[in-house]
Simulated scan of single mutants.
Amino acid sequence: MNKTLAVTAIGEIVTGLALVAIPALVGELLLGEALVGVAAAAARVAGIALIGLGVACWRSRPLEGMLFYSTVVALYLAYLGLGGGLMGVLLWPAVVLHTVLSVLLARAWLRGAAE
């Protein structure tokens, strides 16, 4: 595997984990303003996407990266709708869409593991 790609993937995963865990601090350090409220929720979705990108690039596993992203973002958006106090008109359709995509991706991943 290309070492540059591996280092980049690790960097994206670490950045994604920081955005998920402490979005306010990451915003403060990067942009000079804390990310709060809706900005923190959006930063967490971006963090989940960065982790998925890192997983996809790590050892060339795009299916696993997309499966990770779609599953975790479906769970996080559902959490926001059920207990996070944030809910727009497209929240639940997005949860359903990502859940369906996660099931399809999981089936493809399991088929590939069985081969």
Results as ranks from 00 to 15, higher is better:
4 T>D: 05
38 V>T: 12
39 A>S: 13
74 A>K: 00
105 L>W: 12
71 T>Y: 05
8 T>M: 08
47 G>Y: 00
88 G>M: 08
23 P>F: 04
68 F>S: 09
20 V>Y: 00
68 F>T: 08
88 G>D: 14
7 V>M: 12
82 L>W: 04
68 F>Y: 15
97 L>S: 13
3 K>P: 00
66 M>Q: 09
110 L>R: 11
32 G>Y: 10
52 G>M: 02
37 G>H: 10
25 L>V: 14
91 L>F: 13
76 Y>R: 01
12 E>S: 03
93 P>R: 02
74 A>G: 08
13 I>Q: 10
37 G>F: 06
2 N>A: 04
26 V>L: 02
112 G>H: 03
52 G>S: 06
112 G>T: 09
108 A>V: 04
61 R>H: 12
94 A>F: 00
3 K>M: 01
2 N>G: 02
111 R>I: 05
35 L>F: 15
62 P>D: 03
103 V>K: 05
27 G>A: 00
55 V>C: 08
42 A>R: 14
90 L>V: 05
98 H>Q: 12
106 A>G: 13
93 P>H: 03
32 G>A: 14
105 L>F: 14
19 L>Q: 02
107 R>T: 02
91 L>P: 00
103 V>I: 15
90 L>H: 11
6 A>M: 12
43 A>Q: 09
102 S>L: 04
1 M>D: 10
70 S>Y: 10
53 L>W: 13
114 A>Q: 14
18 A>P: 08
112 G>R: 15
58 W>L: 15
108 A>P: 00
46 A>R: 07
111 R>T: 08
52 G>C: 02
68 F>M: 13
29 L>N: 07
100 V>F: 06
61 R>Q: 15
72 V>N: 10
11 G>K: 03
64 E>K: 01
114 A>D: 15
34 A>H: 11
33 E>K: 07
104 L>R: 04
94 A>R: 01
2 N>C: 02
93 P>V: 04
62 P>E: 03
29 L>K: 14
93 P>N: 03
64 E>Y: 01
63 L>E: 07
11 G>D: 02
51 I>W: 05
67 L>N: 05
49 A>M: 09
105 L>I: 07
